[in-house]
Design a binder for these strands. Sequence first.
DNA 1: CGTAAGTTTGACTTACATCAAGTTTTGTGG
DNA 2: CCACAAAACTTGATGTAAGTCAAACTTACG
Lengths: 262, 262
Amino acid sequence: MAIHATQQVAALPEARGTYATAHLRVVERSKGTCAACGSLAFCMPAGPREDDTWHLEELVSQRIRLRKGEVLMRSGDRFRSLYAIRTGSCKSVVTTPSGQQQIAGYHITGDILGTEAIFANTYDATVTALEDSEFCVIPFERMETLARQNGDFQHRLALLLSREIARERRVMLMLGTMRAEQRLAAFLLDLAERYRARGYSSCEFVLRMTREEIGSHLGLKLETVSRLFSRFHQEGLVLVQGRELKLLDREALRQLVDASVQ
Amino acid sequence: MAIHATQQVAALPEARGTYATAHLRVVERSKGTCAACGSLAFCMPAGPREDDTWHLEELVSQRIRLRKGEVLMRSGDRFRSLYAIRTGSCKSVVTTPSGQQQIAGYHITGDILGTEAIFANTYDATVTALEDSEFCVIPFERMETLARQNGDFQHRLALLLSREIARERRVMLMLGTMRAEQRLAAFLLDLAERYRARGYSSCEFVLRMTREEIGSHLGLKLETVSRLFSRFHQEGLVLVQGRELKLLDREALRQLVDASVQ
DNA sequence: CGTAAGTTTGACTTACATCAAGTTTTGTGG
DNA sequence: CCACAAAACTTGATGTAAGTCAAACTTACG
């Protein structure tokens, strides 16, 4: 059942690192089918289908390629489609009434974006590519049409939304109960697990976020994140080299997370 | 479009205050229809329907009455149904691997429970009644069957799940970025808004949770919650009398929430 | 190769937690 | 109804994890 995607890291033109405005969005149709896409199982939960009556790629109206720093959607944009990450990664940023920003999510290959917008009919986060990335655009209207015709697909849609609810609840739990070191450890383990589930190396990966962004995601300041990385490194839990990361002692990390705050 | 439910506070037998075990669950069919239920619009989002081809009460397999302290579902229970709160309120408690508990939600009339379980097929929170309450049991299989037959209902189901995602994201934002006083102010304003939307008084209500439970929900300790209530009281923002609460200066509360942490 | 962005580390501050009484409220049983 | 115990709440004194401020160092990019 494991997926053996070739771990090809974005054979796309070099990032410019400049923050692009919307009109610079690079939009183009690209060839690949869903069957060939390693992230299939994640953008549609519950594994491969038995029936053959529908095909995921019929749902994908287009694919969008973004360079690092370019924006996929903005908070407040009218909702029309969900987006699946085909390759690459991105962050979603939400803004409080007071103008404060928080990284609500760090998304990688196979994640689905935009589910929060079905209800309000507008996206509530601004999603920015953290490296050159490719996204599948899935018009929600098409999904609903297909769901009406096909019970299996309808169920998968519900699974997808429910999975998101469960995931956010775990983040809530983390923010509400854990101390700084536990948060970082939990974040790293979760990330490793997500990479593992997608067939990538689960003990060695590149963080695509800055210390500040990681901090924002975990409710911490960048200095705290930096100090924690240093400490984990000293203690032999991880090997940190800038944004390159190698998990050395997952068991210890897990114990850290599980340790009661007494 | 406002709903004018008679604000009848649970004409049920007096609570005993003892924590009941599962086998004591008071389960009985009760008469009321969905049309007569003020919380209709909340358990099914997007207002009244145009068509008349389906009826919500067909979905409700039974109604469950619980006394204060009794348990509706336990974390790990097999998922079969969503639950709508007809009257009363409850808390959902999640447990970390380390055994720490957090109040993941404080739910009132019209809220829907169990959406996180569709994916994992087990509930991940233990839901306990905070006062004598009544719940509608909605077998999820029935919902999927109806959704297959009826596009309007299918859309409402998606709305319902999406609304939950958006709501949790707001809580995440709160836990990740706000300071203690802002969290409490945001909690009170959110609660007031939910009461208002359901046709209840939005400036005067009874908290059904202890200081400790409120603290757990907001990622704070009970002493901090208590001190904050005292301070808000002194500053004339609210009137606190044990668990009875009256919002006096919502504008000030709102400014508190919106104030940047600089 | 130089500038800007990102990171590390140290010294100091602070918001909230913890510990500890004492008070009030709630619920039960006489 | 009152009495009593347990639970819930308040308030003060003190501790500490993480934030803030600041400076030096490293890496990325044009």
